[in-house]
């Protein structure tokens, strides 16, 4: 292998990317799309060495920019899996001095709760809950959520089918439809 050539090439590549912030954003975007991307591949794509890339990712983890790595799973493909998701619209009376945050925390600490958002519009908090059965979720809503202080009302919507989640289309036909060789 012509090592000389490699060094020159890399020097040329390194020049291209611009400052570090840009690379950090690129790494975050790449990992957001695919948390399993190998460090070696990321390094090549952004023109850093593997060590530099490892360091950069570690820094992003330490700073809390990267919170974790999860996998998007289409559970409907798993026949044995039973589970339901519900989106619950919650109306509350905010507590003086505490606002919505305290109440939101009392909700999101439950492990059944997968997401909580403060919303503008007809209701205040949107709470996404996962459970084994509709019964289980109903029980959670009536016993845990609606009994919280300051919760005025809840409206529960059960998810019937997931088409797209977090930017990922379920059941997407991603076959390559191009001819194998073209000009």
């Amino acid at each position: 292998m012509n090592l000389n050539n490699e060094v020159i090439l890399n020097a040329k590549l390194y020049k291209v990317g611009g400052e570090m912030d840009q690379k950090e954003i690129e790494v975050l975007q790449l990992l957001e799309n695919n948390g399993r991307l190998e460090t070696d591949a990321i390094a090549k794509m952004i023109n850093l060495s593997v060590e530099e890339t490892e360091k950069l990712i570690y820094k992003l983890e330490e700073e809390g920019a990267i919170l974790g790595y999860s996998t998007v799973i289409n559970w409907s493909k798993v026949l044995e899996y039973e589970g339901v998701t519900a989106m619950i619209d919650v109306k509350v009376t905010p507590v003086r001095g505490l606002g919505f945050d305290k109440l939101a925390e009392r909700m999101y600490r439950f492990p059944e709760v997968k997401a909580v958002y403060l919303m503008s519009g007809a209701y205040d908090l949107s709470v996404s809950v996962e459970g084994k059965t509709m019964m289980e979720i109903s029980r959670f809503v009536s016993e845990k959520l609606s009994t919280l202080d300051n919760v005025l009302s809840t409206t529960t919507h059960f998810v019937l089918k997931k088409y797209k989640h977090d930017g990922v289309i379920f059941d997407d036909d991603d076959d390559d439809k191009r001819i194998v060789v073209s000009p």
Binding site: E6, N10, L13, E26, A41, K44, M45, N47
Partner: peptide, 14 residues
């Protein structure tokens, strides 16, 4: 990004 990846990979294999 893919260009960079491929150029590095090709160079690595000589």
């Amino acid at each position: 990004q893919r260009r960079n990846f491929v150029v590095h990979a090709l160079t690595e294999m000589g």
